[in-house]
């Protein structure tokens, strides 16, 4: 394993271990999936078969893209300012790790569990709809383009959410403030997906491709932008 991979792997493992034992983060991560899953699930399960025809003109499943937009932001917003507050950032920065490696590891540690959570919650939602919704509701709701959009946009939205949250985290002095700002930063993409879900913005292949390309560019640029904003000196001396 080369040096870069070893550095990324070391921080990634450390972050995941910390995450597993940080109750406040776990509770925070559980809230968003619950909000984005339970309420629509209850509504869908209460729908009668006759009312299901209305679902055909909407893309309700896209509403669940709020999960990959918000869950990783909660973890990523903690990643730098949290380390600063517990005094662990300085020892890490005294090692040969490069800031790009550190940031990539932190981003992956937020991305992988968040995407997994988003897919699992989405899968559970689909299973519940398939087995417990009124006849015809599942057919009206679950359509291939929406499923593909969910699969493709989950990591793309999570990536944007993570880089925005890490950027905020590098510039914050308080974990809670960072997390609140990170949620705010993710409201625009959530608003767009919600508008598409309820047909205010027409859902089409072109819309999907433009949105995907935009997110891809933002995700790729995010690493560089956040690395440029990651100022060792300011983070250590606290001179924000």
């Amino acid at each position: 394993m080369n040096t870069r991979r070893r550095h990324v792997r070391a921080i990634f493992i450390n972050e995941v271990r910390e995450l597993r034992r940080n109750r406040s983060l776990i509770v925070g991560m559980a809230i968003f999936p619950a909000v984005f899953c339970i309420q629509p699930l209850v509504q869908v399960l209460l729908l009668s078969s006759s009312a299901s025809t209305g679902l055909r003109s909407e893309h309700v499943l896209l509403y669940m893209l709020g999960i990959p937009a918000l869950v990783p932001s909660f973890i990523a917003a903690y990643s730098v300012v949290g380390e600063r507050q517990q005094g662990t950032l300085e020892p890490v920065l005294t090692t040969p790790i490069l800031r790009e490696e550190l940031l990539l590891a932190k981003a992956l540690a937020a991305l992988i569990p968040s995407v997994a959570i988003a897919y699992i919650v989405f899968g559970l939602f689909l299973i519940c709809v398939e087995f417990f919704a009124s006849p015809g509701v599942a057919t009206a709701l679950i359509r291939l383009p929406d499923l593909l959009a969910q699969l493709a946009f989950t990591p793309l939205l999570a990536g944007f959410s993570i880089w925005a949250a890490i950027l905020i985290s590098t510039r914050s002095n308080d974990v809670r403030v960072a997390q609140q700002l990170a949620v705010l930063a993710n409201l625009p993409p959530i608003a767009v997906t919600t508008l598409i879900a309820f047909n205010v913005i027409p859902a089409s292949l072109t819309t999907a491709l433009v949105a995907a390309a935009t997110l891809l560019v933002l995700d790729a640029a995010g690493w560089r932008i956040v690395a440029a904003a990651f100022d060792r000196e300011k983070l250590i001396t606290g001179t924000h």
């Binding site: 450390n14 271990r17 910390e18 034992r21 940080n22 517990q86 005094g87 662990t88 950032l89 300085e90 020892p91 005294t94």
Partner: peptide, 13 residues
């Protein structure tokens, strides 16, 4: 190697 004044350990680990 630098040992800072504050140990800076991951307390949950």
């Amino acid at each position: 190697s630098i040992m800072p004044e504050s140990p800076g350990l991951y307390l949950r680990l």
